[in-house]
Simulated scan of single mutants.
Amino acid sequence: MVWFFEYYDGCGLAIKVKKKLYEAEGVQKVEIYETESMGKMLVIDGKIQLTELDEPFYHEMLVHVPMLSHENPRKVAVIGGGDGGALREVLKHNVERAVLVDIDRNVIDLSRKFLKIDHGAFEDERVEIAIMDGKEFLRDCEIFDVIIVDSTDPVGVSDTLFDREFFELARQKCDVISLQSQSPLIQKEYFRTLLVNSAPFERRDVYLSCVPTYPLALWSFIIGGEYDFSNLEERFERIKGTTVHYNPDVHRAAFALPEWLKKEVEACI
């Protein structure tokens, strides 16, 4: 019996593994496993990035909440997200151009070969791939309708995607931004840092999803910019029937924060 363990701040998660499919060392250590009950699993620098079982709970909330807040998103940038899950969800909308920006080509190449959760998104003619740091991309890129930040934890190569300068650049380059903002339960410092550093987006809100293979399952996101959910039901018709997790009821419920989290947010915004 082989188990994969991920530890965080005095607790952790154990997942039974059938076999390791591949491992590569480069910009990051990238591992892909076949698990006993959760399908294939992507691990970067020892941290679980996704399993096939619950990745829609994450990717659909990261993508459809901002995409359906915009009247007509045509140009979208995904920063990070080399596994292709966020890109897959973006392409369910009537976009004209989608740019995937990831610093680590290994993540893209191995995900295309072994994970295949992109469902062909990497081959879509609307997609461009840029292998570079996300902040550097923002310095010279054009204006996007929506920017989606699908990053790893804010350490190592992802660190530049969490500082104030990143959000200052992003504010100049999009109408709406969404990003994953870690566990507000057990990664409070990361969560607070993102709330504070995203201040260039004066209007921003926190919303939640349950992702069982992420630290303590309760996962947070931030949306910022000129978002508007007044036509949510009508806009949902664009993607109705294509989602596993997301629907308008889940969308609205995601913004209902418990009292302890409201206090955390109010202290930082």
Rank of each mutant, 00 (worst) to 15 (best):
6 E>T: 02
7 Y>I: 12
8 Y>E: 12
11 C>Q: 10
12 G>D: 01
14 A>T: 04
18 K>V: 14
25 E>Y: 15
26 G>I: 09
31 E>D: 14
34 E>Y: 04
35 T>V: 05
36 E>L: 07
45 D>G: 10
46 G>C: 11
48 I>P: 03
48 I>E: 04
49 Q>A: 07
56 P>F: 00
61 M>G: 00
64 H>K: 01
90 V>E: 08
92 K>A: 12
92 K>M: 12
94 N>S: 15
98 A>M: 04
103 I>Q: 00
104 D>G: 08
114 F>Q: 00
118 D>F: 03
130 A>M: 14
133 D>H: 04
133 D>R: 04
137 F>D: 03
145 D>N: 13
154 P>D: 03
156 G>W: 07
157 V>N: 01
160 T>A: 14
161 L>F: 07
163 D>V: 00
171 R>N: 02
171 R>P: 00
172 Q>L: 13
173 K>E: 02
174 C>V: 01
176 V>T: 00
177 I>R: 00
183 S>A: 06
184 P>S: 01
185 L>F: 13
186 I>W: 13
186 I>T: 14
195 L>V: 13
197 N>I: 09
200 P>D: 09
203 R>L: 09
204 R>T: 08
205 D>W: 07
209 S>N: 05
209 S>V: 02
216 L>Q: 13
218 L>H: 04
230 S>Y: 06
235 R>M: 11
236 F>A: 11
239 I>G: 05
244 V>G: 00
247 N>C: 10
251 H>L: 08
258 P>R: 02
260 W>H: 11
261 L>V: 10
263 K>T: 12
263 K>C: 10
265 V>S: 07
269 I>D: 10
